[in-house]
């Protein structure tokens, strides 16, 4: 992460650098201290549903990052034009448009994966992380800040679901990215991890470890 934000780009005198300290916080905070899944408890549905295998999880993570960054950008550009009373519908409309885009691209170029993910691509629309960022951040901030914020939240979501998927695939199917690591003769695979129960357990323990490290306590 740190390599790409170390060199501030040269800009005009008045405006702040493209990656100033304040802006770096937008990207770095959601990765750990303010993680959307483990701290803010958002977007759990898809975090659990698609994490049986690494590959669909990666596709899901990329789709969510794409949707969240671009809807943040659009809503931020429109923020002064949207009347307060209908903002939820407008936000849902923008998100649904980008999700439709993702779904159509997936259908065209990777139909297998489209079948595997099924309804869960559509459910990015109701992924609370996206709605939450639009409502809490993009409605009141400038476009570039919103893009960075979207990137931060997206990557914070991505590393958590990839970690969950890694353990579920390793222990449940004995493989990583469909490459067999060990077979049943060395250690029997545990079908509990393919099942929904394994997802709850892995995420619960991951949250425990992460919160113990950051010292965050919920009351």
């Amino acid at each position: 992460m740190s390599t790409e934000v170390l060199e501030p780009t040269a800009t005009t005198k008045k405006s702040e650098p493209l990656f100033s300290k304040r802006r770096r916080k937008f990207v770095l905070d959601p990765l750990n201290d303010d993680n959307p899944i483990t701290v803010q408890v958002l977007g759990i549905c898809s975090a659990l549903a698609v994490t049986v295998k690494m590959e669909p999880t990666l596709i899901m993570a990329v789709s969510v990052v794409f949707v969240i960054v671009f809807s943040n950008l659009i809503i931020s550009l429109l923020r002064n034009l949207i009347p307060g009373r209908v903002r939820i519908i407008v936000q849902l409309g923008v998100i649904a448009t980008f999700v439709t885009l993702v779904s159509e691209v997936l259908k065209a170029y990777n139909y297998e994966m489209y079948k595997v993910l099924g309804a869960f691509v559509g459910l990015i629309i109701t992924n609370c992380i996206v709605m939450g960022r639009l409502e809490a951040f993009a409605m009141g901030n400038k476009p570039w800040d919103s893009v960075l914020d979207g990137l931060g939240s997206g990557f914070g979501y991505a590393w958590v679901i990839l970690t969950v998927a890694f353990f579920r695939e390793l222990l449940g199917s004995g493989s990583v990215f469909n490459h067999q690591i060990y077979d049943a003769s060395i250690m029997p695979t545990n079908s509990l991890f393919i099942d929904s129960i394994g997802a709850f357990m892995v995420l619960g323990i991951l949250i425990w470890i992460q919160r113990t490290k950051t010292g965050y306590v919920e009351h």
Partner: peptide, 23 residues
């Protein structure tokens, strides 16, 4: 409940156990 597990963590684990019951 241990500090790090309070709230979301323990709820996840409980949901997992309830899932076993529903199985």
């Amino acid at each position: 409940v241990p500090d790090g597990l309070k709230g979301l963590g323990i709820t996840m684990l409980i949901t997992g156990l309830m899932g076993i019951a529903f199985k």
